[in-house]
Design a protein around this nucleic acid. Structure first.
Lengths: 240, 240
DNA sequence: AAAATAGTGTCTCTTAGACACTATTCC
DNA sequence: GGAATAGTGTCTAAGAGACACTATTTT
């Protein structure tokens, strides 16, 4: 007995981690993509792909460590909001064999972003405008599908959480936060109820400083927690 | 070059799928657990564990196929609501090595459940009452942690979706549905607003039949879609 | 003072909750 | 009629949206 139990010498799927990195550039939702290298012996040479790579069982304590390691390699950012999106796994998503990917999504504040450095398997990194449910370029593997799922998750969570606050720099005005919400949701929100909602939870902290402009200066706020988004009890009303 | 690219002969993590199967028994939330066999050469002999097992790259088209295969082996059920919960992966959750699990959760209608059949690696299957955030027994691996996450996800989704409808048999009354909500949420809901909410969406379909009793009979309803839960725009109000 | 944006107030609408009331069945 | 549960109506409270109004700054 127990012949079967102790062996584990059956074929194992490939295990990768991908991260959908969102940020706001010029008030437009952007996603970070990496250009795969031109080596023809690897799948999808020269194509754009999500940030990611294989789990390294020697280096990585757990899946999130893989994600943070890849994020650091590609963006230079150490702390970032990171949330699991979902996982994908099937026999045909990678020509090299049965493959799984554990996908995270991350939101970066504009000022957190370093000039993306080229990694071992990446000859380029670039921000792409999110248009509808994707980007204006073809993606490697099933990454277009994964990206669409991530955009969908982001938009629906934005309806009832403070997630867009993680796209903001350390200090920001309520109007700037509203702009971030509107950029992600791709629809306008009403100022008065937006302000009431944001200030009625334990989300923000007023600072003594104001953003100066050629008009009435706006109060600057700061996030109370950079770890957990706040959940609201209702969604914003949909467009009629 | 490309020496590194084509090899892929590094060590790969183990890839498993687990399913947290929920049902209602006597109006109490229950979860299906499998007793691991007594073979001492496998980890956690004789302990209770979630339904699950290794991905079989020969048999399984994708991760969901693994989940449905395991579900069928353990419960005999073919169609069931199945939703991805999250994935876990680290170096120490399985003594056999770096291991990942893709976790689904499933809701079964009471009448869907067959007598659980013993599988290859399971000498027993049994329903356990959910108490607080777990069950009254020790679980193998990190399954207690996974179960707690699943219960938490179920409870929070029940606040704003029609998920409990998937715990119902084909025909049911509004009162029975309310009982299901209350069983999962572990708090009472108000009849009038509950009924208004359920009937104001495209969730249910009245049937011409009534549930007879020693009092006024109640209208029987049926689900319109057995695939997608309905999302409400607000949560139920929390207890003050 | 004019321009411009910050921030507030008021009114309406929707929906949840509380709770009383009516309806329909069996006995 | 009484018991029991199904199902409805009415009132209040909370919060969203619409939108007008006031406030504060620079030029």
């Amino acid at each position: 007995m127990s012949t079967k139990a102790s062996k584990l010498n059956f074929e194992k799927p490939l295990t990768t981690v991908d991260i959908v990195v969102f940020s706001l550039l010029e008030n437009k939702l952007n996603v970070l993509l990496i250009k795969r290298n031109e080596d023809e012996s690897e799948p999808y040479p020269n194509q754009w792909a999500l940030v990611g790579g294989f789990v390294d069982v020697m280096k990585d304590e757990n899946l999130e460590a893989t994600a943070r390691r890849k994020l650091l390699e590609k963006t230079g950012v150490k702390t970032a909001y990171l949330e699991q999106l979902a996982s994908w796994g099937n026999s045909n998503r990678d020509p090299r064999g049965w493959s799984t990917t554990h996908v995270y999504f991350s939101t970066l504040a504009i000022n957190d972003i370093q000039t993306p450095s080229s990694g071992a398997n990446a000859s380029d990194a670039q921000w792409f405008d999110v248009i509808d449910n994707g980007v204006a370029t073809t993606l490697a593997f099933d990454h277009a599908n994964i990206l669409a799922t991530a955009i969908h998750r982001l938009r629906s969570k934005v309806e009832y959480t403070s997630l867009p606050a993680f796209l903001m720099p350390e200090f920001f005005t309520l109007k700037e936060l509203q702009n971030a919400y509107e950029a992600v949701l791709a629809r306008p929100l009403e100022k008065s109820s937006f302000r009431t909602r944001m200030l009625s939870t334990d989300l923000l902290e007023a600072t003594p400083n104001y953003k100066e402009a050629a008009n009435r200066p706006a109060q600057l706020y700061r996030l109370k927690s950079k770890i957990d988004p706040v959940f609201f009890q209702r969604t914003f009303n949909p467009i009629k």
